[in-house]
Each structure stands twice: as C-alpha cells, then as structure tokens.
C-alpha cells in the first residue's frame, strides 16, 4: 500500500513538473494504469548499448525498442537508433559492434530523448537491469535540460532476483545475466549485445516471468514498477 501511495505521488509530481507534452502523457499513462492488470498495459522493452558501464564517464551508442501490446511482442513496431557521441566508441565496439563510422548519420542525444518520449507516450518502459539504462538516460536528460525527474521502468533482472531470493537461493555470479535468466524459462539463447536483439530478449523474458508469476491477469503495473535509485 505504501509503495502504491508513493508511486502515485511520484507520478503526479512528474506530471506537474514536465514541460514536455509526451513526457506528461507518459507519466499520465502510468498513473492511469497503476492498478490495471499488466495484460492490458502497453509495454516498451528497451535496451541501450554504451561505451562502458559508468554513466559519469561513458556514453550511449545505440538504443533498441520493441513494444508489447495485448501481451504479444510486436516486431513490426521495433525500432533501432544510433546515437552521436563525443570522441570514439574505442574498445567498446568489440562488444556492441557499433563502429565510429556507423555513427556518422546517428541522431544527437537530444533528438534521441525526444524520440524516446514520443515512443512511450502510451507505454511503460521495460529493461533488463533497468537502473543502468535509466541512469544513462537520466544524465542525458539533465545535460539536455529536457526533464529533471528520473524515469520509471519494469526491471526483468529485479523480478528474477526477487524470485530467487524468495526461493531462498543464493545468488550466483552471472545468474542474473539476460541469457542466464532466459535459459531458466526455456527461452532460446541469442547472441547478446545488439540493442534490438537484447530488447527483444528482454521482452520475451518479461512475458515468461509474468506467465510463471501466475499470468498477466492477476498482476498490476504497480507491483512491477520500480524507481531508479
């Protein structure tokens, strides 16, 4: 109850403080659907590839999004964007495969944020290890002065962590990685580290998690939403 009350307050605060229409609509959507079963909520799985894991030093390189509507993933509506960075992708290219050359026609960080808010006007964000992605987005929001409040998202890593702790299991190193989580749900293993592939992998994982939690009818959005700490 406390969490729900807190969530409502946070959302209302964001609606009041947002200067951007699409951001206001996004938070309004969250507020309106807090107590709705998750099956009726539109979701947007997202993954961001970065030059490193430190939001203070590193930058976002690419972003992939894929919506889940009516409990079904919609490849048709998937999108992938490259992001302009300062300097070079350096050694991180080995991981995400995005080269400096690819970024010539990339969008600026400002354009990306506006695009992303537009995409999630009527959707809830989902990510695997969401706090990391949200921190990167938060720093970008601050630097571009579009918005100052942290975003909210459903975190598939958190869901699995809670589940393992509930079952009194000791968390093993690497057991919460995307592919490790997926294999527990009988999901195929994909080559990781393409933003769009990982967004798809995250979307599928969420559907699997919800199914195992007892189905999408009985779970509300509020139960799943976490705050970027």
């Amino acid at each position: 109850m406390l969490k729900q009350w807190w969530l409502q307050r946070q959302l209302k605060k964001r609606i009041n403080n947002s200067s951007l229409d699409s951001a206001r609509m996004h938070y309004q959507y969250l507020l309106d659907h807090l107590h709705q079963p998750i099956s009726t909520v539109n979701l947007l799985a997202l993954d961001i590839e970065m030059t490193g894991l430190d939001p203070k030093k590193n930058q976002m390189v690419s972003i992939g999004i894929i919506p889940i509507i009516n409990a079904q993933i919609q490849p048709k509506l998937a999108q992938y964007k490259l992001i302009k960075i300062q300097g070079s992708v350096g050694q991180s290219a080995v991981i995400h495969g995005v080269l400096d050359n690819d970024l010539k026609h990339a969008l600026s960080i400002q354009e990306i944020l506006l695009w992303l808010f537009k995409q999630c006007e009527d959707k809830v964000l989902v990510a695997h290890h969401a706090p990391l992605d949200l921190q990167f987005l938060q720093r970008a929001l601050l630097s571009t002065q579009i918005h100052s409040q942290p975003l909210l998202a459903i975190d598939t890593l958190h869901i699995d962590k809670e589940r393992q702790l509930r079952q009194h299991q000791v968390l093993k190193t690497g057991s919460l990685r995307l592919n490790a989580c997926r294999s527990r749900y009988n999901l195929p293993i994909y080559n990781a580290h393409n933003a769009l592939t990982d967004a798809l992998a995250c979307a599928e994982l969420l559907l699997a998690q919800l199914s195992q939690m007892g189905g999408m009818e009985d779970i509300t959005l509020a139960q799943l939403l976490i705050k970027n700490r």
């Binding site: 079904q72 490849p75 199914s211």
Partner: peptide, 14 residues
C-alpha cells in the same frame, strides 16, 4: 514475413 509476426509466451500454468 518476420515483420508481420507477433510473439507470445505460453506457460504451463495456463
């Protein structure tokens, strides 16, 4: 054809 697909997950509980 790949674009036209939608993806769902079916759990045994259902």
């Amino acid at each position: 054809c790949c674009q036209s697909l939608t993806i769902a997950y079916y759990g045994k509980q259902q």
